[in-house]
Design a protein around this nucleic acid. Structure first.
Lengths: 137, 137
DNA sequence: CTACAAAATTAGAATAATTTTAATCTATGG
DNA sequence: CCATAGATTAAAATTATTCTAATTTTGTAG
């Protein structure tokens, strides 16, 4: 099975009909950039699918989110990013180069007692500062 | 000293000249709503200061952030909120009523080894789900 | 096949939050 | 007073996202 076929099946198994647009968008998420914005995905793909519309990217992202194929992350204000990694984890964004790194976080280890009062549905952790690469410059 | 005088001095001590706009905005943050949006602050204040401009609210917020008087929180996409509480803590937003609650979080207790690689400047934690009030309905 | 319905995609307009611009106002120090 | 820097303002511009309505594609029953 090719990589495309694998991802195509993966979409099907999550209740998403794998149109060419959806498949390519998911491929970008899985194979290229890690946490792209809608615009980045669009610009990347429009070369290949010239009739692609930004609305399709947004539609697809919301569909993916609903089917639990991606998580929407809000590190910067005014720009959503999409993350295919559904395992609980956090993010670190470098204030200089803007790169976003995944950070392993074990939510259970945190045991925040106060949260017992709530019915938890989502957890988001992110950090900002300077990454190694930018520190060494 | 009146409450206004205390807050006025507080601004001065943080390097912010306490104009009436800035003082009233900070008063709202401290005394009224907990995590207001720029628009909420504007609508609250424009009754009292009819010439107030939304740009002033944004300018003031960015000044406050720079002077470490507020933190900007990005729980929802497409709408920043302002938090005067500078102690490290997290947030919980109810998916039904939208209320944002403060959550005590001890960052040190988390010891995320991976973060050693970075020079940390900000930490953000937020959760979503259902609050007690909405659960009991 | 073919026709039809449903689903998906699209372009472009609309909306919402924020930033920018340029003008006006205010406070302060000489 | 006056000059100057800083603060505020209204309005226009920008950016990200959503909406709308039309068009295209897909799947299916005849």
């Amino acid at each position: 099975m090719t990589n495309s076929e694998i991802l195509s099946n993966y979409l099907k198994n999550h209740g998403v009909k794998p149109s060419i647009q959806r498949l390519k968008i998911y491929e970008i998420l899985r194979n290229n950039v890690t946490h792209p914005t809608a615009d980045e995905i669009f610009n990347h793909l429009v070369k290949e699918i010239p009739t692609l519309s930004l609305a399709t990217v947004y539609n697809t992202m919301h569909l993916f989110e609903q089917k639990e194929l991606v998580r929407i992350i809000n590190i910067e204000n005014h720009q959503a990013r999409f993350d295919w990694n559904m395992k609980p984890h956090g993010h670190f964004q470098c204030n200089v180069c803007g790169t976003i790194y995944d950070i392993e976080i074990d939510t259970n280890q945190m045991n925040i007692n106060e949260l017992d009062e709530y019915q938890l549905e989502e957890s988001h952790f992110y950090f900002k500062g300077l990454c190694k690469t930018c520190l060494n410059k």
